[in-house]
Every structure is written in C-alpha cells, then in structure tokens.
C-alpha cells in the first residue's frame, strides 16, 4: 500500500511524516524522528514503557497507528523536559531513587504527568491505579509511588 503523509503536533511543533499504513506512533517517534525517550519494551501493549500523551491522555504508542494522531497533540518525555534542569516529576524521581535501570521511567513519568494534570493531589491508591499498566522490574514500585507523591507536592508549591 502507498505511503501517506501524516501531520500532527509533537511537543509543541507541527511535524509531518511519510509512513506506510499501520506504522505505529512508537516507530515514528523512535525511528523516523529519533526521539528515543519513548521506550520499546514489548511492542504489544504489556509494559507501558512506550507511553506518551495524546491530547493529554496517556496512550501506548506501540499500539497506535500514527494516522490516528493526525491533527492531534502528542507530548513525549522530551516535550516536558526543560532545556536546563529537570521537570518537577523527573526531579522527584531522581531525588527518591525511583530510577534504577531507567527503562520504565519515561513511561512512568508520562503516566504520572497525566494523573497529576487532572488530579493534583492523588491518594496512594490513585497513583497505584494510574501506574498499574507500567511494569518496573527494578524498584519494587515503592520509590516510584514515593516520587509521584513528592512530585504532587512540588507541583502544588510551584
């Protein structure tokens, strides 16, 4: 099948990509645009490491044909990382030892960003529910829960 041109807003800029049908957003981000913060753990919806925000909602980019985001707004970890320093959620991960191998971190941070955007003061249960689709094989989740709660506090005082 012929390639198509898809346009969408990525991290605040309009981008245009030429793709074969059913090319995933993950492949476009990592391989066409070389934005590799979005990870590729399983490519079948089972790990959450590829999570990005589409119109503010967390979405598994490995399951999403890029044509489906035509005209929409996509934000990846690169998009929330300031030029200098770190986003408060990144800083909270750093300060709470919530990063070991780091493979889950981009997905975790995007899911927590989406949670805190709509619920600035979540309970621990709400944080657990939010990250339930994201696998971490290193930390045992405790430091990630701590980091999310710490990030909520930081964002409220910003």
């Amino acid at each position: 099948m012929a390639s198509r041109i898809v346009t969408f807003n990525l991290n605040g800029r309009d981008v245009e990509v030429m793709v074969k049908p059913l090319t995933t957003l993950q492949t476009v981000l990592r391989e066409h645009l070389r934005l590799t913060a979005t990870k590729s753990g399983c490519r079948q919806g089972g790990c959450g490491s590829c999570t990005v925000l589409v119109n503010g909602e967390p979405v598994l980019s490995c399951l999403l044909p890029v044509e489906d985001v035509a005209g929409q707004t996509v934000v990846t970890l690169e998009g929330i990382t300031p030029v200098e320093g770190l986003h408060p959620i990144q800083q909270a991960f750093f300060d709470n030892y919530a990063i070991q191998c780091g493979y889950c971190s981009p997905g975790m941070i995007m899911v927590i960003k989406a949670l805190l955007d709509r619920n600035p003061n979540p309970t621990r249960q709400e944080v657990m529910d939010a990250i339930a689709g994201n696998v971490c094989r290193c930390t045992g989740y405790e430091s990630i829960l701590r980091a999310a709660e710490d990030a909520a506090r930081r964002l409220q005082t910003v």
């Binding site: 753990g41 399983c42 944080v127 657990m128 339930a132 989740y141 990630i144």
Partner: peptide, 17 residues
Amino acid sequence: GNFSEYILPGPHELPRI
C-alpha cells in the same frame, strides 16, 4: 508465548517492606 501473557505482580501487590 509472549511478554503480555507472562504474569507479574504490580504496584497493587506491594507488601509492607
């Protein structure tokens, strides 16, 4: 046969440590 069918505990299973 693949990662998604491999059963792992998640944050809800975190015990008191």
